[in-house]
Amino acid sequence: MYNRKDKQLAQKILTFSCELEEGQNVMLQLVGLNGIGLLRALVEEARAMNANPFIRIEDTEIRRILSETGDKNFWKNQAEADQLPLMKKMDAFVGIRASLNIYEQADVSREANKAYADYFVDPVHFKERVNNTSWVVLRYPSEAFAMNARMPTQRFRDFYYKACLLDYEELAGAMKPLQDRLEQTEHIRLKGEGTDIDFSVEDQTWIPCFGKRNIPDGELFSSPIRSSVNGYISYAPSVYQGKPFDFVKLDVRDGVVVDFDSSNNEALEEILDTDAGARQFGEFSFGLNPVIEEPMHDILFDEKIYGSNHLTLGNDYEIAPNGNESNIHWDLVCIGADVYLDGEKVREGRTFITDDLKGLNPENLMQ
């Protein structure tokens, strides 16, 4: 039915991440049939807890057909007639992304993506699920996933479960000194190859992430003061809305992207033109998972790369807001820039160098 690691992962998701309780409703959504073993383990664990699982299984090619053909009226009806009323009854949500082709949505038009974002994702997920459930989302391993990570399949599976089943309570303790520093910080600068950007985070809220919303996890995030962001930044390879980018470079003035370059400028321009907030930043984060070393074209992993930061285009999170509103949220990742907090260098490349933060370096977290 499922393997031993899936059972461990299901237990961690429901008890630690979602903190599911007896009698609660939990939506278990599987996108892509590859993750059926984990879904079975989640259903079995939920019923053993006397919780109420609601199952949604979506084929990725059917999802592509709906994405390509859906318009405002279609997605509005889908949200109002089906998913939104059901989501309002949920106490928890687990989303398993198990597609075998990360480029399945590559041919979906800008207009179709916008209709889906405006009339389905925003009301069902951004407004209802994110704010009113205990939720967690994760990917599931496959040969295709291993190929994107440039690993043999078995080594990738070993890596996947190691990253996902990390001791998050230990990581939470190691994050605390960085959170304490950041809560007193007014100004942050990132400086590295192709990157020299600075911004204010004065009085912003910092949120530690250690397995409660994403699996794998390991980040500490806030949002910049929108108008304070100035400079230029270079990002690692990324895939967004099914479109691949080998690199992205942004020039920013007073919080707004004024120039850009990438391996796919036509697609990048379309994303930036989604709405006014798409050219501004809604999140800034430190990646802190000691297991994840290199980008693998999957943002749930890439945003957690140790020694990285993501300065995110688009919508902020209500839990750490800066007032930016957008129908995109693109966690572009910058790896290995030096980090300065109020002028003091605290990370050199990917290594924290101050005594209070050295506990976040991989050699100290994986002893």
Rank of each mutant, 00 (worst) to 15 (best):
A92K: 01
V108T: 13
N131W: 08
L84I: 11
L9K: 09
G343H: 06
G70I: 02
T351G: 00
D217W: 02
Y317D: 05
K7F: 10
A337H: 03
T205M: 10
N132S: 12
D251K: 15
L341Y: 09
D331F: 04
I13W: 08
S222Q: 04
E303T: 11
L357G: 08
Q83A: 15
N3V: 05
E19K: 12
F221C: 09
T312C: 13
C209R: 02
E143P: 03
V31A: 04
I188F: 05
R350A: 04
R40Q: 01
M366Y: 00
F245V: 09
K191L: 14
I13T: 08
F120R: 06
E266G: 11
T15D: 09
S308M: 12
D6V: 12
H187I: 03
F93K: 10
N132F: 14
P53R: 12
I328C: 03
I207F: 02
S223G: 14
G349E: 07
T312N: 07
L341Q: 07
A112G: 08
L272W: 07
Q24P: 00
D59A: 14
Q184E: 14
N289D: 11
E325F: 04
G194W: 05
G192L: 08
A41T: 11
K7H: 03
E344V: 08
E219L: 14
S263M: 05
L272V: 09
D254T: 00
F93W: 15
E269P: 00
A276G: 00
M90H: 02
R279C: 01
R139P: 15
L66K: 14
E45K: 13
W135L: 09
E202C: 03
Y2E: 06
D91M: 07
V121N: 15
D122E: 13
R129A: 03
A172R: 11
L86F: 00
F156H: 12
Y2I: 08
R129F: 00
A117E: 15
S17N: 01
L288E: 06
I292H: 04
D196H: 10
A267D: 15
V248A: 06
R129I: 12
N132L: 07
E193A: 12
N324S: 01
E294F: 13
A51W: 01
G173F: 04
T274H: 03
Y119E: 10
L9T: 07
R155A: 13
